[in-house]
Design a protein around this nucleic acid. Structure first.
Lengths: 192, 192
DNA sequence: AAAACCATGCATGCGTGCTTGATTGTTCTA
DNA sequence: TAGAACAATCAAGCACGCATGCATGGTTTT
């Protein structure tokens, strides 16, 4: 068994942590097919057998990576600024262009074909999605009791997803900033 | 050479066509890793050697599939209705939830790691993107000379992409329809 | 000392690419 | 127009590379 007892001392947890971080950056840079266990092990600076010890199968490794990514994304969400609405929208969109979202996207798409992963990914993504919505409402100062407000915020998040997807291959920053600025105005008016 | 002379008679072009269609549906259903040449050949009803004849390498097959998907998407775009703005937005978003977009998305993400594909995909996606924008402006009856209008339409297309991405794992139709309805209203006001 | 932790080598499965052989279609010529 | 040479198209088998999984041996912690 891998964790019959919680890892008593930290060296083990350190390598486990490094393996997860390596898995995430590997996903973000080389995609699903390119993220072989040898690659993430090498990137983590450990042997392949060490990886095999912590995560007996490749699927174990990446299901753990899914939860790790979800946790990191939640954490990033809670660090959002809430002073200015324009800045809040920009920061929100930025969350969808970083390596975390890239990794999540690769997992998301890969989970389409892997039955085991799909359950985990859908479940966790639903959780992160709800949290994203909750925090978005908070930093935007939106009044969800008014009709249409909820859908407005959701649409904004969906647009952020779309921008993140577009950023995958070509990082067209200037275009993105213009779109975000305009949509921030639209949202601002709709929430007024 | 595969096409030193254009395929004189149709049996060949028929199987080539079937291979491309099979590649697209395979991508939409099983994703990139699951779309092996054996799988698409079997789905097309031909032998693996036949596929190998038309597309010597797997990469040849899927680069051809990329262009095929781009062409099909362009064709679908030109069939959009332009009578009612609400209906136009809904139809536009629907283009991002069908199997064509699913296939394009898998190609898009897979091209992140495959250097050869990335060029083709980015180039063609840029073309389709411009055409999408042009047609979106047309069916929405938007006046692009007014400031902010261009960015509003682009944001709408990005939102459609994001909705399509969200539809990959869970087809949350009712939520999508509510979001689309609300933003159709907002866009409608913004373009007035 | 025992158990967790890590490293190395081997075996299997799988997908791709290539080669060979058979069949269909096209074209040139008598 | 017949028919034979020739090219295009399709089918089947083989060899290689690669990633995963497992098993063994060494090292560190408790």
């Amino acid at each position: 068994m891998a964790a019959v007892t919680a890892p008593k001392q930290d060296r083990s947890r350190a390598t486990r942590q490094r393996l997860l971080e390596a898995a995430v950056s590997c996903l973000a840079e080389h995609g699903w097919a390119g993220s072989t266990v040898s690659a993430v092990a090498e990137r983590a600076g450990v042997s392949r057998g060490a990886a095999q010890h912590h995560f007996p199968t490749r699927e174990d490794l990446f299901t753990a990576a899914v939860e790790y990514v979800a946790e990191e994304r939640s954490q990033a969400l809670r660090a959002l600024p809430s002073d200015d609405r324009e800045a809040a929208v920009a920061a929100l969109v930025d969350l969808y262009t970083g390596p975390l979202f890239r990794a999540a996207l690769h997992l998301w798409v890969a989970a389409t074909g892997e039955d085991q992963l799909r359950a985990r990914v859908t479940e966790l993504e639903a959780r992160v999605g709800r949290e994203s919505h909750r925090i978005a409402v908070e930093v935007l100062g939106a009044d969800e009791t008014r009709p249409g407000v909820r859908e407005t915020v959701q649409g904004l998040l969906d647009m952020a997803r779309g921008l993140g997807l577009a950023t995958l291959l070509t990082d067209d920053r200037t275009r993105r900033e213009r779109v975000v600025s305009q949509w921030a105005r639209l949202v601002n008016e709709a929430l007024r």
